[in-house]
Design a protein around this nucleic acid. Structure first.
Lengths: 348, 348
DNA sequence: CTGAAAGCGCTTACAG
DNA sequence: CTGAAAGCGCTTACAG
């Protein structure tokens, strides 16, 4: 099939009106499903649309409605997160972002709203986020921040833009967010380790300036205290596999732990590898519990016992909250907190 | 800082013109950096822009320029790929997509072109891709297809839309694409296994209706033939960890292999796990080579020896090709093929 | 080098 | 219920 026809001018509302023999206003009404249009007009227009292959021009519509039907999805990282072994894509290489994207899209698609992706690492990029919304290109922003002390949430609320975050902001701000109950998650891990008979328990934390990481630590410690354990040794990690391994070694040599909670799955994988490298058996010599239930949880041996965070559900809700806010701009910000569940597999 | 000011009407070209005391045309010229504007006008306008906080309205501009400065990034999967243990986000949970996104953005950002993300799994979604471009919402499409027999490339070329694929299409089509030299990659794996002294070598293939998977097999077999090995046992996989494990077991029991090439890293991880579960040592009893150099390559023990595919570079080039095509629509389609390199680590 | 004017393709009061 | 008309905020020939 040859198709060398010149890209014929795409047809407009006007063309449809001509073909249907009605006014442009009527065509517009039919296209937008407005009520109160006579049946014979609807038919004529529908027909004409089919014959002309009409597709509404989004820019023209957007110019008058002042809606773009687009939301900005911004992934905000720190400068250091950009250059890694996998280059500039590294920040996004974490399966976490893909799962978030999938969740968002499940809420956005039914409403026919489209996500445009933006990375915000530099100051320049952060101000682009604001401009993008100001120029009417997006109606609001969904922010996934992997950065402690991120100025973006503040900038966004100051500008009065509709915004929803994934994760609680690191200082109180009048905006909506979704999060998992990190404290409850930490407690789940502690309870499980204790129930399995661990007597010397430690924790590999995430960066403690990130609220979620601190809450996991807090919840873990509180639960251990309830079990009568006042002191819980901890070693800091950065959420990467290697940092988990390093932290685990510290815990092993300095505290001879027999049970460890790592604040995410990547670090849990690192912890397992580190233990095994020292000839220890997981979970017999040392049990390991992760957090997330990421794809990595099934790639290691033993498979990972972990605190599941329902990422897709959370991000779907995140998009829903933004949509709601767009429909009713004066609504108060709200938070949706999800309860984690422990998924028991091989490592603890 | 309270900011309860009503969202003041955003200023327009007209406002700037008024403040600067020039015509709208002049403002437009300096905003767009057109040459031949008197210095004093440029200054007055620049000033007025700063004072008014003017940001051009994208819809209005787009309506007249017929450019959206947006490209559609579509991830096309099969129906079955949507529902998995991780739900609807699963298709995107593969770190591969995040790395591609990162690569694309590195080419798009300097040109200030924005990517909107779309999943195309159902027929309805596929036709939405066409509509989206037809309504002027995007200037072209970047397609990453994880699906054999995907009708989308054909649909896109038929419609005469600017499009670039990641991976060679499964039948010849007049469109641009980027790919890795899969045959050379297969050969690299074969050469390495032979050089290490493996005497009974097998391959875990991907789905063979995907051109890349077939090429890896072909390249592997050809190279083995050059080494005097006429027969290479193979077991099929689906690119998942589990399928790699299953295939590995077949190879181990039926062919007592001591060297295996898995057509991607996920399957290589599965293969290693399967070998270890049978008490075999990797690489001593059986060596394993993967393909991709994904994040998984460093998460397993031993770490994975693998054929590296420069995903970020490839996708950056992919975006560059589309941009080029948008600048010069009549250009012939072209393909950019990248040479893989073997990354030697612990598993082979 | 600059400005007045037309026009991009829609939606939406406003009359009728 | 329908249509004529204004207007959304830009860019771009066209004169001057």
């Amino acid at each position: 099939m040859q198709d060398d026809a010149p890209p014929t001018r795409v047809s407009t509302l006007e063309d449809v009106a001509l073909v249907a023999g009605v006014s442009r206003a009527s065509v517009s009404r039919v296209v937008n499903g407005k009520p109160g249009v006579a049946a014979h007009i609807v038919e004529a227009v529908t027909d004409a649309i089919a014959r002309t292959g009409y597709v509404p021009n989004r820019a023209a519509r957007s110019l008058v409605t002042r809606r773009s039907d687009t939301v900005l999805v911004v992934v905000s990282g720190s400068d250091t997160s950009r250059a890694g072994p996998w280059g500039p894509g590294e920040l996004l290489a974490d399966p976490f972002f893909g799962r978030v994207a999938g969740g968002l899209m499940s809420s956005l698609r039914p409403r026919d709203i489209h996500p445009v992706l933006m990375l915000a690492v530099t100051d320049d990029e952060r101000s682009r986020v604001l401009s993008y919304v100001r120029e009417g290109s997006a109606d609001g922003v969904l922010l996934v921040s992997a950065q402690a002390g991120d100025p973006l949430p503040q900038m966004l609320t100051d500008a009065g833009l509709p915004v929803v975050l994934f994760s609680r902001p690191d200082h109180p701000l009048p905006l909506s967010y979704v999060d998992v109950n990190n404290r409850a998650g930490g407690a789940l891990a502690a309870d499980h380790l204790v129930a399995r008979g661990c007597r010397s328990v430690g924790i590999v934390t995430g960066p403690l300036d990130i609220p979620g990481a601190e809450d996991r630590l807090l919840g873990f410690r509180e639960a251990m205290a309830r079990h009568g354990v006042a002191y819980v040794p901890s070693a800091p990690g950065t959420f990467s596999v290697e940092s988990g391994a390093t932290a685990m070694e510290a815990l092993l040599t300095q505290h001879r732990v027999d049970g460890v909670f790592a604040s995410n799955d990547n670090m849990a994988v690192g912890a397992i590898l580190a233990a095994q490298e020292r000839g220890l058996s997981v979970p017999d010599d040392v049990a390991v519990v992760g957090f997330d239930d990421s794809t990595a949880a099934l790639m290691c041996r033993p498979t990972l016992t972990t605190v599941r965070q329902p990422i897709e559900t959370m991000s779907a809700e995140m998009a829903r909250l933004l949509l709601e806010r767009l429909d009713a701009p004066d609504q108060r910000p709200s938070a949706a907190i999800f309860e984690p569940v422990l998924v028991e597999r091989g490592s603890a």
